Computed example of a mutant assay.
Amino acid sequence: MEKIVNQKAWLLVLPVFVLVAFSAIIPLMTVVNYSVQDTFGNNQFFWNGVGWYKDLLDPSTELGGRFFASLWRNLLFSAAVLAIEIPLGILVALSMPREGWRVAACLIILALPLLIPWNVVGTIWQIFGRSDIGLLGYTLNLFGLNYNYVANPLDAWLTIIAMDVWHWTSLVALLCYAGLKSIPEAYYQAAHIDGASRWAVFTAIQLPKMKRVLLIAFLLRFMDSFMIYTEPFVVTGGGPGNSTTFLSIELVKLALGQFDLGKAAAMSIVYNLIVLIVCWVFYTVMTNVGTERRPETGGV
């Protein structure tokens, strides 16, 4: 007898599809439309085809030079914060207690930076790094380090990296702690019986079991760090000069500062594609490397 399938359940999902269409697909198509046109104001647009994309991907042009300069800054910043936050988050998770009231205390303390809005984080570090009233800036200058994130590009970079590490390492630590809590106690008992060292337990038991949560942590932190805008804009405004002008800040300058909607739209499309491609490549590599083949089992 043929089984009757009721497709009416899709009607329950229909409002979600409609909401996604209005909140994502339609704005995306609007940006695509802007990226192939040019405007001189008065809401008059002229067809430009792929002209903006050609300029954007050509480093010799003014638009391409700005794009690639901002892109390398973004990649450098993302690589720096990931190289610090992932190992530091693992170390914090390994140092956390496994039971008792201290667990709740540690979780609350780690969650506090994540609850602070991004613009407030930027304001905190903007004041914190000032040499006249900020604790960090005043202390460093007191020791003769001549710290000034407003005028020194290196100081500006170190400040925004320290700010991001302070803000988001807790997320990595919480994810890693969740992965550690999912490991059965029998694994540790077997390692203790075999006389395994602390490093052997970490590399053979804990790190493989944290692989999935580390993948999530890496993807979340890469996407957020690569699209960062509010914190560095509040602290440095993209300066000194253009030393901390990331793609997001460059995009806002084009769209709102210069009102070059076509250039900004093309840059935003390429910007989005870069994030999707990098995340897809990393996810594919992480899910394929180190996978163990299950041995074939025969019938009894």
Rank of each mutant, 00 (worst) to 15 (best):
V92G: 09
V278H: 10
V13Q: 15
M227N: 06
W118F: 12
N119K: 15
V32D: 09
Q258N: 11
G179E: 00
I26Y: 11
M163H: 03
S131P: 09
G65Q: 03
V121S: 00
G49V: 06
A156N: 11
C106G: 14
L254H: 01
P59L: 05
I4C: 07
I25D: 06
A162S: 15
F67C: 06
L94Y: 03
Q206G: 09
A196E: 03
A204E: 09
F222L: 06
M223E: 02
V150A: 15
L256D: 04
M29D: 13
L76T: 14
C279Q: 09
L115S: 14
A79I: 04
L82Q: 01
I205P: 02
I228M: 10
G49K: 09
V235M: 13
R130L: 13
I183H: 04
A204V: 08
L254M: 10
A9Y: 15
L158C: 12
L214A: 03
R198Q: 10
A80L: 02
T203I: 06
S23V: 14
F22E: 04
G238M: 00
N33A: 05
W168P: 02
V18S: 11
T169Q: 03
H192A: 12
T230F: 05
L12Y: 15
E250F: 04
A265C: 04
S248K: 01
